[in-house]
Design a protein around this nucleic acid. Structure first.
Length: 931
RNA sequence: GCGAGGGUAGCCAAGCCAGGCCAACGGCGCCAGACUUAAGAUCUGGUCUUCAGUAGUUCAUGGGUUCGAAUCCCACCCCUCGCACCA
């Protein structure tokens, strides 16, 4: 409790000392380490889930700083994009939900909230809040380098980046189908949808049938089934359009006309034609030349494809049933299904078989969709075209579909027609979403095979933590295709060669890690002087520094600062960014920077839960980081977030668990201060020191591998349990002066995780300077003492054994006798320990003449020893095998043992004793008799 | 559906890649004892079943390989993340 008050008082003071110290400049005498995090989009308050993302890199930064590296840990704010525009609009409209979120959960003061009708005000407000909370948490950030992505200097940087990427032909105008809301006049993303977020854009082929002077396009996903067409379907209720589409005369539905226009086709309406006028007329397939009849069908939906469909009754269950129904009425009985695909499990006409097998009564049966899907999938994966398919006979469905599509589109005037897989896809504005082809949109071509290949080649050189994410990166690199990188609205940088567009937010944040290296200096240069040539020199060393708009000394200074820090060593981010940002930045680094400046490492985090549930601001299930820091103290928050799981694992914030972390810190505080009075020496000092070396080594190794949880296990739990044993072993409880050294090491081991506490303790225990810059402890191998660790280990185990016996024993104990194993059993132990094959070790033991002479006794001992050896750690086994004087150890610790069990303890040799238990004595496992 | 990762005792979680050091590190919670006027803190012990320090059954589920599997192989179920005009 009292510590809490102390921490609240001292935190601000320590913070004040820190901030200027963490401003990091190039230092040629030191190795550098540059870590950075995916910067936040400050549109709301930080919650504990965000906390870990920034705290882990800070722990890493602090660790390496203490190990002597010149560390750079910068931070900036990503304010590009559209979300805040929406927020500002909603606040202006006094939207209740938004006001409640910002005024309530985020606790924005009323007068500030009123100014939130301006988007920039929002991001600036929260950027400041982020910085404040990050400072409160003690993040060792160089705040001079802070920037936002809409300052003019940064925009100049982005312009420079894209002159290169564009110059390499990697940014192209593309035609690409997108979900689009005609009402908002904008593409819609997943989170812009009110309904239908599972719908996909389907790509149909229009196959053409000649109908007098017109053509009838039929939309299909299976163009190869053209060989099985028996008829067309038209809905007699529908009024169709006669239209000129891209100069050709087509018959289509009105809906199709609308869609075609959105898909960049020119549609001129010539007139209408009733559905009934089509029925029973003939149309000729432009591909096969086959003449087919147009039959009536009520299921044909004008709002689907062209509004007219072709019928393949042998393979399409719907077509089969529709035809069956007509034929049962005695109509069109001359039509027979034409099978064109053979597929395992079906004989002649798969659609007929599957429908009849499932006894489908009519088209409205709810099972129809599933059956259709089943058959389509089977045919696609296993089907082969038969002899009805002309030159495509024998091909797989997969192959034939590709080939036929190509022929259609290249030779037969077919088009690809895009349609949502569901009709109810609704924009947030309430209107229906269509597929639109944006023809004036800029794309970054991540689909470029050569570029992908180059990125693949870089990846093996990038250290990935944890290594398992490598597969996901590889998949992402392969999977990425054209990425639309421009948009009409939002904050950000204009596309230099087409200024009516802005760069989209994921595209203007791919190489800003390089910008950090100079951000604090470049901000002093007027933006108009920051031509691409200036950046070319700073980042690529190209051109003549004397001929630039910025003076030579300045650009050289920037150049050398960049070269000092770059490439960055580690980038930290949550795992959800692998599929976009983290992979994008690899592409851009590869496109812009030379081999030696490619990223060196990435650390990918797991996600955060709050009390077992997903954190979500909109659902109110969040715990603000600032509240956590105020309630528990910065160190507690840090230690919990870093220690509850390894960085790449998901973690769960639970207040009751956090509280116990707080107690642990308080306990350490007390232990360290208590040690101040230690003096003199004790026989156990060497043991404690020896153990400490291993804790240091363990924590160091763990932190090197970003295993913050493991590091804490060593640095906190390990040390605490060692200290407990140490104190327990001391006869009078007075520790030796060596404890002060141990504590000094301990505090330093913990400093990266709980820097405030460590800083305060460092000062209180009489050290000068900041612990943040103190030397990280180094394990001294010469202080590792296997003998004393072995003897303490023996005592620990023996005490445990005695106590478990005392618990079980029924009699009222008076004394404990311990029988130490005889010398010949040590021989057995050594033989067993060195045997490679423990299965036949009894034979080996019995091969010894002296042991053989002992007969069954020796054989039994050998069997028991094998079991014992299996249960001991290897270093103990080898130490015991080398020799151990158990009698001496127990005799020396007699007082301790008696204190522990509260009984008289007698140590005697098993050899010669007539007590039956004595025979079970083994090396490192004395026989214990309670009597 | 597809891609990636994961399921270990009341909870969190180590171990798995390189099979025997595994009843399975550690922490939390819980129980008991010590200390204390008491509470808290601290210390000690316990926490699958059984037991003179042992043994038995466990590591999502079902098979398999092996003298031996939490660890390797196959199948199946469940969870998390991603699946793109977006932070």
């Amino acid at each position: 409790m009292t510590e809490n008050l102390i921490m609240n008082e001292i935190e601000p003071e320590i913070r004040k000392t820190w901030i200027p110290q963490f401003e990091s400049n190039p230092n040629p005498t030191k190795d550098k380490l540059y870590v950075n995090v995916a910067f936040p989009y400050p549109s709301g308050a930080m919650h504990v889930g965000h906390g870990r993302t920034y705290i882990i890199p800070d722990v890493v930064a602090r660790f390496w700083r203490m190990r002597g590296k010149q560390v750079l840990f910068p931070m900036a704010f990503h304010v590009t994009g559209a979300p805040v525009l929406g927020i500002a609009k909603r606040i202006a409209k006094k939207d209740e939900k938004t006001l409640k979120l910002y005024g309530g959960l985020y606790r924005v003061p009323q007068d500030t909230l009123e100014k939130f009708t301006d988007p920039v005000t929002i991001v600036n407000y929260f950027a400041d809040e982020y910085q404040r909370v990050m400072q409160q948490l003690g993040l060792s950030i160089d705040w001079r380098r802070r920037f936002t992505t809409i300052i003019p200097q940064y925009s100049k940087f982005i312009e420079w980046q894209y002159t290169h990427v564009y110059g390499q032909g990697k940014v192209q105008k593309g035609e690409y189908p997108v979900r689009y809301c005609p009402n908002c006049d904008q593409p819609v993303g997943d989170h812009d949808l009110l309904e239908g977020d599972t719908a996909e854009i389907m790509h149909y082929v229009f196959v053409m049938f000649r109908f007098g002077e017109f053509e009838i396009p039929c939309a299909t996903l299976r163009p190869e089934t053209i060989f099985g067409v028996t008829n067309l379907w038209a809905n007699p209720e529908t009024e169709h359009l006669k239209a000129e589409v891209d100069g050709k005369k087509w018959i289509i539905s009105k809906d199709a006309a609308l869609k075609l226009r959105m898909q960049k086709h020119e549609v001129k309406e010539l007139g209408t034609i009733a559905g009934t006028e089509l029925i029973d007329k003939k149309a000729v397939c432009t591909y096969t030349g086959k003449e087919v009849t147009i039959l009536p069908a009520s299921f044909v939906d004008p709002d689907m494809g062209s509004g007219l469909v072709m019928s393949v009754p042998a393979h399409a269950p719907f077509d089969y049933i529709a035809l069956r129904d007509l034929q049962q009425q005695g109509k069109y009985t001359d039509i027979t299904p034409i099978t064109l695909v053979t597929v395992p499990g079906y004989k002649s006409t798969p659609a007929a078989e599957i429908v009849e097998k499932n006894r489908i009564p009519n088209q409205d049966d709810p099972r129809m969709d599933a059956l259709t899907q089943e058959l389509y999938t089977l045919e696609f994966s296993k089907g082969k075209l038969n002899d009805n398919c002309g030159k495509h006979a024998g091909k797989s469905v997969r192959q034939a579909r590709e080939d036929v599509t190509k022929e259609f589109t290249e030779e037969k005037g077919s088009i690809i027609f895009h349609e949502m897989s569901q009709k109810r896809v609704i924009c947030r504005c309430g209107n229906r979403v269509y597929v639109k082809i944006l023809d004036d949109q800029w794309f970054i071509n991540y689909g470029d095979a050569a570029w992908k290949q180059q990125v693949h080649e870089v990846m093996p050189n990038v250290e990935l933590v944890p290594p398992e994410v490598s597969a996901e990166f590889d998949r992402t690199i392969d999977w990425l295709r054209e990425w639309p990188c421009s948009r009409r609205v939002g904050l950000g940088t204009h596309v230099p060669w087409d200024p009516k567009w802005l760069f989209e937010p994921l595209s203007d944040s791919t190489i800003y890690m390089a910008y950090y290296t100079i951000s604090h200096k470049i901000v002093k240069i007027p933006p108009e002087k920051l031509t691409p040539a200036v950046f070319d020199y700073i980042f690529l060393g190209k051109g003549n520094p004397k001929e630039l708009p910025v003076d030579e000394a300045t650009v050289n200074d920037l150049r050398s600062e960049f070269l000092y820090w770059y490439p960055y060593d580690y980038r930290f981010s949550a795992k959800d960014l692998i599929s976009n940002h983290l992979t994008f930045q690899m592409f851009h680094h590869r496109a812009i920077f030379p081999d030696e400046l490619q990223p060196k490492g990435m650390v990918v985090f797991g996600m955060g839960l709050l009390n077992g549930m997903k954190m979500s601001s909109s659902k109110g299930n969040v715990f603000l980081l600032e509240d956590a820091a105020n309630e528990f103290g910065a160190d507690t928050v840090r230690m919990f977030l870093v220690g509850s799981a390894e960085p790449w694992q998901d973690f769960d914030w639970r207040n009751e668990l956090v509280l116990s972390v707080k107690k642990q810190i308080e306990r350490m505080w007390q232990l360290v201060l208590d040690a101040e009075s230690a003096s003199g020496t004790t026989p156990i000092d060497a043991w404690l020191v020896s153990r400490m070396q291993q804790r240091i080594a363990g924590a160091t190794t763990a932190l090197t591998k970003f295993q913050t949880r493991q590091a804490l296990q060593e640095a906190y739990n390990g040390v605490v349990s060692d200290l407990a044993w140490y104190r327990r072993r001391l006869a009078d409880g007075a520790p030796g002066a060596v404890l002060k050294d141990v504590m000094s090491q301990w505090v330093r081991l913990m400093a990266p995780v709980i820097p405030y506490t460590a800083e305060a303790l460092w000062k209180k225990t009489g050290h000068d300077g900041l612990i943040s810059f103190a030397d990280w402890p180094v394990a001294d191998e010469s202080k590792i003492n296997p003998q004393i660790e072995l003897s303490e280990g023996l005592l620990q185990r023996t005490v445990e054994d005695i106590q478990s016996i005392l618990k079980l024993v029924q009699i009222e104990a008076k004394r404990v006798r311990m029988f130490v194993a005889p010398e010949w059993k040590h021989q057995v132990f050594s033989i067993v320990a060195s045997a490679e094959d423990k299965r036949n070790v009894v034979k080996t033991v019995m091969a010894d003449e002296a042991l053989h002479a002992r007969g069954k006794e020796a054989a039994d001992a050998a069997v028991q020893t094998v079991r014992l050896v299996h249960s001991l750690p290897p270093q103990i086994v080898s130490a015991v095998a080398e020799g151990i004087d158990e009698t001496a150890i127990f005799t020396a610790a007699k007082a301790f043992l008696e204190k522990e069990c509260g009984l008289e303890v007698e140590v005697c040799a098993a050899e010669g004793s007539d007590h039956p238990k004595a025979r079970s004595a083994l090396p490192f496992k004395p026989a214990i008799v309670v009597e």
